[in-house]
Design a protein around this nucleic acid. Sequence first.
DNA 1: TTTTTATATATGTCGTACATATGTCATAAT
DNA 2: ATTATGACATATGTACGACATATATAAAAA
Lengths: 229, 229
Amino acid sequence: MPLTRLRPIEHLSQVDKIELRLQEYFRNEEFNPGDPLPKEMEIAKALGVSRTAVREAISRFKMLGIIESRRNRGMVIRRPDVLRNMQRVMDPRLLDGDTMKDIFEMRLVVELGLAHILFRRKTPEFIEKLESIARTEDGTTDRIDLLKLDVDFHSALYQMSGNETIIRFQRMLMPIFDFVDSVILQKPRINQPLNIATHWDLIEELKGGTPTGFMHKMESHLWYFFEKI
Amino acid sequence: MPLTRLRPIEHLSQVDKIELRLQEYFRNEEFNPGDPLPKEMEIAKALGVSRTAVREAISRFKMLGIIESRRNRGMVIRRPDVLRNMQRVMDPRLLDGDTMKDIFEMRLVVELGLAHILFRRKTPEFIEKLESIARTEDGTTDRIDLLKLDVDFHSALYQMSGNETIIRFQRMLMPIFDFVDSVILQKPRINQPLNIATHWDLIEELKGGTPTGFMHKMESHLWYFFEKI
DNA sequence: TTTTTATATATGTCGTACATATGTCATAAT
DNA sequence: ATTATGACATATGTACGACATATATAAAAA
């Protein structure tokens, strides 16, 4: 019997329904940050539910950062932090393998696409920072330390982009990177091409080369991960 | 007087504190999806607070999708949807201009970095889809329609990446794109270079060219936006 | 006018009661 | 022995009332 096509009745709790109503209310009323909201009791009355249920629903929006409330002043719409909510659930234990692979791949995509921005925003100070890291690498043999320095190098690149969202995006994804790294390291090594680009190559290109050349080198540099995925 | 450096005491409500406690509890106990949580009353007792307050805090985690609860069965840890929470606050009215600019720039970065993935995942069917859109464009003069088709073309590229997270990421950002587009269109036009790459050029490169070549063309194609930002 | 005091008000917290769904288990029907 | 039926326990869901607490506003005192 094809009972699979029989989707179960959506069993929403009162609070769930209130949440939905509020969501559409916020959209339709075109609230802007700073705008005051009706009082809890007014909302409860208007919806015909208890204040308790309304507060539970409101509490959810506080989690998203859309609502802020102060004693006696009432509640107001807030400017939410886009990445904060994503960050909260960015836990390798909670996500499935496919999603993490997708996220990791997205990191590679971003890093490759960063080239242009970097050439626009590069400064002697940033270059010096990169060279400093690369020099430290040259004097390091411990594998764990090298892995850490590698993260530092790439973090510095993100930093150079000057794009706060991208920077935070990378920082947010760190737990995933660590996880995927550890998984990848367990796989058998594959034969790398000999002409793989180093951090020094990237710096060189950044100093006197072109965005396209940089992308090419970055592609070579990240090739290892691309192959593994 | 430099009183600006004197940060106010963090005045967290009871529920806020409970939220924090639960968050660290979840991390430390290493919960996995499906794991059962203690009962509301047990949590309330353990924290020395009322069940009401616990429920308000729990409700917040339900918003994130980390917790699910059913009557008499108790509460369990859920696998959250990483992008859902970001999606919920992706409202041009709620975000500030700088953040939106950053997000828009990130879109450009992703689109540029996509080249490699596309060359790995391209199929005749996807190419045909792109050509179909480009053909429709050739027979269209209305500006609004063309803008829509442009979105379609780029959406198809994302689709071709096969990366669900990236695809959803792009879809999620649509409201922002629309907003930034409308802002950009109001600015005075700047003189475009004559050799700007068209959609046909991109298709051509995708069919018989190289990832690097594609990136180059894409860069040229998106040049307009890069200049504006 | 300035300062102090009182008061109203909206959110924050708590306890209790009851509703509702669901798992458990004993009992009755087949 | 197996299957239905029904009683009961249990955990979440909803509601209400009470009081605490902070804060804006108005009234009173300096």
